[in-house]
Amino acid sequence: MSDGSAGSPPQGNPKSAYFLSHADEEIERRTLAVMVDNEPGVLARVVGLFSGRGYNIDSLTVAEVDASQHQSRITIVTEGTPHILEQIEAQLLRLVPVGEVIDITKSKRGIERELALVKVAGKGEARVEALRISQIFRANVIDTTNESFIFELTGASDKITQFVDLMRPLGLVEVSRTGVLSIKRGKEKG
């Protein structure tokens, strides 16, 4: 007690077990599939929630997946401590048009894919090398001129990053990536 007179503090661990300091919590990366009603403003709600509450978005993709039910699937890759991630899920579910939040990363059955379009310009040895590497990565050439290729590549994000890094010394011009899409393995939904 501050004045030392009234009452005696109960026995027990003086350091609170409930201290939600996240300093010593590990930052984790998560992919969340957010199932929403495809109504006006729904994406703004989701994005606004992240910016308003100071959460991170590493990537975000969205498209309608069931036109008859007006259902869209938003895939968000985010980062945070376990406590923040728990809050993100709860806060997303507070939004009226959000029906479900699926934690793809935690499920262990998650599959994540990204599509990238990669433009590389060059001549001679570099050009040959770029094409050779693209074959290793199973990328498709979807446009070509005498001095350039556009490769189309799908895969996990780190595979795409790796490919882009390899293209850099070979004349990388620009990259367009979809961000992560995800789904769970097996026959069940969600």
Binding site: P9, P10, Q11, G12, N13, P14, K15, S16, A17, Y18, F19, L20, S21, H83, E86, Q87, A90, Q91, L93, R94
Partner: peptide, 27 residues
Amino acid sequence: RVDAFSPTSKKVHIDIDPSSVNKIVRV
């Protein structure tokens, strides 16, 4: 001060909003 909040208690939290639970204080 949250790190000095009720250090020795067990906590039960009744709330209709799941996002309120474990937001500030672990229960």
